[in-house]
Design a protein around this nucleic acid. Structure first.
Lengths: 241, 241
DNA sequence: CGGAATTGGTAACAGCTTGTAACAAACCCG
DNA sequence: CGGGTTTGTTACAAGCTGTTACCAATTCCG
């Protein structure tokens, strides 16, 4: 676990430096900033784990800064403000702040809340924009969306019809999420109403099972959720390219 | 984006139902619970995105419950409490809560803070938190939550229906803890009120007994607690994988 | 202690959901 | 066109689940 890097944004120099030294003394890396320009300059050059942003800066508005940052970045932001009325807090949360802390604050509590946000952030892998890849792996199987090839764990290629392939793609896009027949039908077709009457999805599911399930009578991956629909109960990974 | 699923834990029935309906009216899926046993029972069977946990329950301590949940699970937790002193809030954050909200609270602000936590959580790959399924052992039996396989002590596989499996999971999540029929029904169903009338749970228990008890007439594991409900009187271990 | 009342067990049943074989229509491609 | 393939429909069988009814077990209470 690396040391968390904070950016402390406050235009009151005494408060700013007090916070910086306080966090440093508690094992954080903390840098000061006083304006949106400084935030941007710092972000351009440094990794930051969390921004502590005062809402009332000299002639800038922390809420607006937060909104602008959020429109581009996913950096966690905790707003700090002497304005503690509910509607002011709401405004902070509405522009995407992770927390809103009223001044004056208990320094220990501030650290606890910073840690709470970091804990949550650290658990989620950083969101990185990844080029869409077309090769999927699931339970030993491999599906190459570019060539439309489905390869079984034993290496043999399995031939799927176009409809079966389409169903597989829908399932791969929604692993572990129960899908109703209606949702599947809608995802498969530009004319969802076509499937209105009948059991088309059931039959389609059955046919796909017969090709990709080892024992179609006791499906491991393409499970039935009685009363709901079907779930693809299988971890899916997209191949890095 | 799927609808967020909340679990509202409060022992004051008026407050609990008020919150549940309020969240439902704002587009959330919300389920009530009153105790740690109910939380476990619900988590065993349902996806949950966030738990709103009252700190002062009848004879349980929300802080301790939070600590126990956190020691195993990564489900987001917001603590709610009438105790708003700094050291009490600190205690909440220290056991891993994502936020700590004082009662009485502004309902709109509560929703804003719930959304703030969910926003942060949603970056993670799996949309909804689901209790980690692994392999469970109990009295010589083995249940593989991933494959949904139940293996008897003699090595043979026993086929359970989906409802029977769901019941087994609830029991495994609460060994040695008496569960009322209502708690079981609530964990098994998205619409607890459906089971209102009848003996569905009794019959379900009977069917499960007939499959996993050596002598269903004198159940060793799935015991009846007359006047209360049922207990899973069996040590359960979760295999580390 | 004994009879009534309460509580739990379960067989039987009915309603509903799902699986799938069989058929027919549509489609594809030479 | 003409054969093979794919796909939706239908019909039936099988399975799942809640309800009811009845009986057994337990508890209550005079």
């Amino acid at each position: 676990m690396t040391i968390p890097r904070l950016l402390i944004v406050d235009d009151d120099s005494e408060m700013r430096m007090m916070m910086v030294t306080y966090f440093q003394r508690h094992g954080f890396i903390a840098h000061p900033a006083t304006s949106e320009a400084e935030i941007n300059a710092h972000l351009a050059e440094n990794r930051v784990d969390l921004i502590l942003l005062d809402v009332m800066l000299a002639d800038e508005n922390g809420i607006e800064i937060c909104a602008r940052l959020r429109s581009e970045e996913d950096v966690p932001i905790i707003l700090v403000s002497a304005l503690s009325a509910d509607h002011q807090r709401m405004a902070g949360y509405e522009v995407g702040a992770d927390d809103y802390i009223a001044k004056p604050f208990n320094p220990e509590l501030l650290i606890a809340r910073v840690k709470a946000v970091l804990r949550r952030v650290r658990r989620s892998p950083s969101l990185s924009y990844r080029r869409a890849t077309s090769v999927w792996h699931f339970g030993g199987w491999r599906y190459d969306g570019k060539r439309d090839e489905v390869i079984a764990p034993d290496g043999y290629q399995v031939m799927l019809s176009s409809r079966e392939t389409a169903l597989l793609k829908v399932l791969l896009a929604n692993p572990h999420i129960p899908l109703t027949r209606e949702e599947i039908a809608a995802a498969l077709s530009d004319h969802p109403e076509t499937d209105a009457g009948g059991r088309a999805i059931d039959v389609l599911v059955g046919r796909l099972r017969s090709k990709i399930e080892r024992n179609p009578k006791a499906p491991q991956m393409l499970r039935t959720e009685r009363g709901t629909g079907y779930v693809f109960a299988c971890d899916v990974t997209r191949e890095e390219t």
